[in-house]
Design a protein around this nucleic acid. Structure first.
Length: 678
DNA sequence: GAGCACTGC
């Protein structure tokens, strides 16, 4: 099927792709020119409507700002606000981001533009890093989760005059929670101004949210000119049965078409499997490359790679070659690569779903949204005009949802609800959600919080619930931290809590190096299971000087391990604040395992003869994840608790530890008595 | 026999 899809050398790239023309022979990208990306034939100043915007902020409480990435809203808008006096008299302008890297890099850039040192007039605050000055900082970039936490301490967020919630279209859990809280704060403190920044035309949903049960004068939409180069969009005429293969062919053809002309290719696929298969497609095609043709340099980019491997995509390609970066969604917003002129978009994304009824998380491949497709296409127009090839028909594009599905509708609500309760929001049915989580999800979360002793029969937080709400870990893990006092294993539980909070500790490369990495990993194996294995890994990391070379030699992620050290340090402070001792169990693994049961008591499972497990809750068939040290071994007692359960092709459990079944029963009894007493 | 992407004073 290789070349019947698209014949290079006939009428230019994408000749058999479906395009519309504007009557002058110029292909108008049907989706982008008129709807999504602001086109620009000659350069426009950023913020053509600066005065209009400042006027709107004086007049309205809430401004919904619509503007594509590249219009400068994140960097310029806070500066304009500061210049026009919004940061006078000790007021602070906050700008929230869903990602840490965005908060830090934007703050650094704005500090330079303003001519100040980072952390002085312009600063940032993310978990573990506060580069701001309580007195002097006027513009503060921060993660949305961080500002949400600040509401626990200062419910009216009184030090801020304006809060800009950036990238709101991404609809992260904390963006949504924050918007709900901010609407509430504005009722009590109308002087607070909000700017909700969104890249999509779906801004009306935010407008509706802020004007519902207030007044039409509460909010308005302002649109900003983009600073993007035009991106032409082409669609496939027919859907492809194998987008990985098609993607490789399209990239291949772009390279042949473009000859030695500049411009790299960025490809969006769904996951590591796709990426590796695509690399194979390229190595097959490589043999057919004419000697005179520009060489293609395929590079993978996904979160599972080491920092070194990730950095390779930023190195400019050698003369006479062109980079093809084969990436997951990481390249959509988290990582920006310069010099991309062509984007190949498969149209799908892997999305985490959570089924509250079965407490089962799953990873599903679903079509992207218009917002995502636009964002991906925009990656081709950062430094010059570009082309985006969408590997699906225009008719399929027309059926895509406008925005990303809000994370709050497909995530475990246990922690968010605990935090909302702690904010004094007791009636969750009356809380104004931008998108309400499913009722089932709220009910199950409440049920779980009651069962864990965080919420009393009266529906209010218990004393321990108040403390756990502050603690940046899952409820079950927090429970263990508290139980460690009685079981005298705070030191070890602290480490285990930190290690379970990070992901991708073990870097398992493909092929033979992968097998070697596997051997390295086994050196840390603890008989009792994965939690104690993780404890061994952490202790070895600190014993050998926390070095990156040591990590490399043991197939561990230095990034992840360093993060575990930070998290452990942070959690230790909470334990001290809550008067929880951090004494060691002195090698008594039994106490430690009993402590694990106090947090994981809902996650018990029993071994069955075929090597799988049955969950205590629901009697579901569970498969051990292959990274577990219990993957090939039956636990002596036949019983385990596990950290998490996820449905992929099968239902898998990850991070297991062997337990005695009566511990589960004991815990149940203890809990039962507690409920009877109260 | 397997790893979308984020995040938490």
């Amino acid at each position: 099927m290789a070349l019947e899809f698209w014949k290079p050398g006939t009428t230019g790239p994408g000749s058999s792709l479906d395009r519309e023309t504007d009557g002058e022979g110029f292909a108008v990208p049907s989706a982008l020119s008129s709807q999504s990306i602001q086109h620009q034939r000659e350069r426009l100043p950023i913020f053509k409507h600066r005065d209009e915007l400042l006027y709107a902020i004086e007049m309205y409480g809430v401004i919904i700002v619509v503007g594509q990435t590249g219009c400068g809203k994140t960097t310029q808008l806070p500066q304009y606000l500061m210049e026009s006096g919004w940061a006078d008299k000790g007021n602070v302008i906050a700008c929230t981001q869903p990602r840490r890297v965005a908060a830090t890099s934007v703050a650094a850039r704005v500090a330079t533009e303003v001519g100040s040192i980072l952390g002085d007039e312009v600063g940032y605050t993310i978990r573990f890093e506060d580069v701001s000055d309580k007195e002097r900082t006027r513009i503060l970039y921060m993660t949305d989760g961080m500002l949400f936490r600040e509401t626990l301490v200062d419910p009216l967020l009184s030090r801020y005059s304006i809060i800009m919630v950036d990238e709101a279209h991404e609809r992260s859990v904390y963006t949504d929670l924050l918007l709900g809280i901010l609407k509430k704060i504005r009722r009590k403190r109308p002087s607070l101004r909000l700017i909700v920044s969104s890249a999509t035309l779906d801004a009306t949903s935010f407008l509706d949210f802020f004007t519902a049960s207030t007044s039409p004068e509460e909010a308005t939409i302002v649109s900003l000119e983009g600073r993007m180069y035009p991106v032409e969009v082409a669609y496939l005429q027919e859907p492809t049965p194998d987008y990985v293969r098609t993607a490789a062919q399209v990239a291949w053809n772009i390279n042949l078409q473009q000859g030695s002309g500049g411009g790299d290719i960025l490809m969006f696929l769904t996951g590591r499997d796709d990426i590796e298969r695509c690399l194979e497609e390229f190595s097959d095609l490589m043999a057919t490359l004419p000697r005179s043709a520009t060489r293609l340099l395929p590079l993978a980019l996904h979160a599972g790679l080491s920092t070194d491997e990730q950095l390779r995509v930023f190195e400019p390609a050698a003369r006479g070659s062109r980079k093809v970066i084969i990436a997951t969604n990481i390249a959509e917003a988290s990582v920006t690569i310069e010099g991309i002129k062509f984007v190949v978009d498969c149209g799908f994304v892997k999305m985490r779903m959570f089924n509250a009824t079965t407490a089962l998380a799953s990873l599903a491949t679903v079509p992207t949204s218009v917002a995502s497709a636009t964002q991906r296409a925009g990656r081709a127009g950062r430094t010059s005009p570009g082309v985006c090839y969408r590997l699906y028909p225009k008719s399929a594009f027309d059926t895509l949802p406008l925005s990303n599905s809000p994370e709050i509708t497909r995530t475990d609500m246990t922690t968010p609800i605990l935090q909302l309760k702690s904010l004094g929001i007791d009636d969750l049915m009356k809380f104004e959600w931008v998108s309400a989580p499913p009722a089932e999800s709220v009910l199950r979360a409440l049920e779980g919080l009651v069962a864990a002793g965080m919420i009393g029969e009266d529906g209010r937080l218990t004393a321990i619930g108040e403390q756990v709400a502050e603690c940046p870990v899952e409820v079950g893990i927090a429970r263990m931290l508290f139980s460690s006092k009685e079981l005298k294993c705070g030191e070890e539980i602290l480490t285990i809590a930190a290690m379970t909070a990070i992901q991708d500790v073990f870097l398992i490369p493909d092929g033979a190096p992968g097998a070697l990495a596997e051997l390295e990993r086994r050196k840390f194996t603890a008989e009792e299971g994965d939690h104690l294995t993780l404890l061994n890994v952490y202790n070895a990391f600190t014993r050998y000087g926390r070095s990156s070379s040591w990590c490399k030699a043991h197939a561990l992620s230095f990034r992840a391990m360093s993060r575990a050290v930070s998290i452990r340090g942070q959690l230790k402070k909470y334990m001290q604040r809550f008067n929880l001792p951090t004494e060691s169990c002195e090698g008594d693994a039994k106490r430690l395992r009993r402590c694990l049961v106090s947090g994981y008591w809902r996650n018990g499972a029993r071994w069955v003869a075929d090597g799988t497990y049955r969950s205590v809750r629901g009697n579901r068939t569970l498969h051990v994840h292959p990274t577990s040290v219990l993957f090939t071994r039956k636990p002596r007692s036949g019983w385990v608790v596990f950290h998490e359960m996820e449905e992929t092709k099968k239902t898998q459990i990850r991070i297991l530890t062997e337990i005695e079944p009566d511990w589960l029963v004991d815990h149940g009894h203890k809990f039962q008595k507690k409920v009877e007493r109260s």
